[in-house]
């Protein structure tokens, strides 16, 4: 086993470990950190699979953006200070059983397929070809995604505004 292979499996273990921690832990804040470990491991795996630009984007958008957003969400929705923020589970047996069954099905499907051998030629940087493709073949999708992001951010800011909120039980009949 070469060094790159060993590193790949190490990062795969980090990714799976973060996911398992997310499933097991009861503390929402720790769960956010588990998610961060998973996303970081994922970015490393992308780089190993020859997608360096996607890996960098993963770190920028997920680790830098989504995880921070989730942390804000955790802190804004749990204002009992000094008390641990717990996330309990329900339907454990059914949920885990269903997920395990699904995993077994997927594993069987993957195992029974004959996958083509992956290319062993090391890829050169993907930034330039991806930029060219986004500006030519995928220009419409690219622009639409930009408009969607603008609408989503305006909408999220509008939905999360503080004014005009009635609390349950304090509404006027």
């Amino acid at each position: 086993m070469s060094v790159t292979q060993a590193l790949f499996y190490a990062f795969a273990a980090l990714t799976l470990g973060g996911g398992l921690f997310l499933l097991i832990t009861k503390n929402v804040l720790y769960a956010a950190y588990g998610l961060m470990a998973t996303l970081l491991g994922m970015a490393a795996l992308y780089v190993f699979l020859g997608a360096d630009f996607v890996g960098a984007t993963q770190i920028l958008v997920y680790v830098g953006g989504v995880v921070v957003l989730v942390l804000f969400g955790v802190m804004l929705t749990n204002r009992l200070s000094g008390q641990k923020i717990l996330s309990l589970s329900h339907n454990r047996l059914a949920g885990y059983g269903l997920a395990t069954l699904f995993l077994a099905g997927l594993g069987y499907a993957i195992h029974s397929m004959n996958w083509a051998e992956a290319s062993t030629t090391p890829t050169e940087g993907t930034v330039k070809p991806i930029g060219k493709a986004l500006m030519t073949d995928y220009l419409l999708a690219f622009e639409l995604v930009g408009i969607l992001l603008l609408i989503v951010l305006v909408g999220a800011a509008y939905v999360a505004r503080l004014s005009g909120i009635k609390e349950k039980g304090h509404t006027t009949e």
């Binding site: 996911g19 997310l22 309990l88 589970s89 339907n91 949920g95 995993l103």
Partner: peptide, 16 residues
């Protein structure tokens, strides 16, 4: 597949 099923288990069982 394993990560997908972990996510599925989290969605099905977590309350928060």
């Amino acid at each position: 597949a394993a990560l997908f099923c972990l996510g599925l288990a989290i969605i099905l069982t977590k309350k928060n």
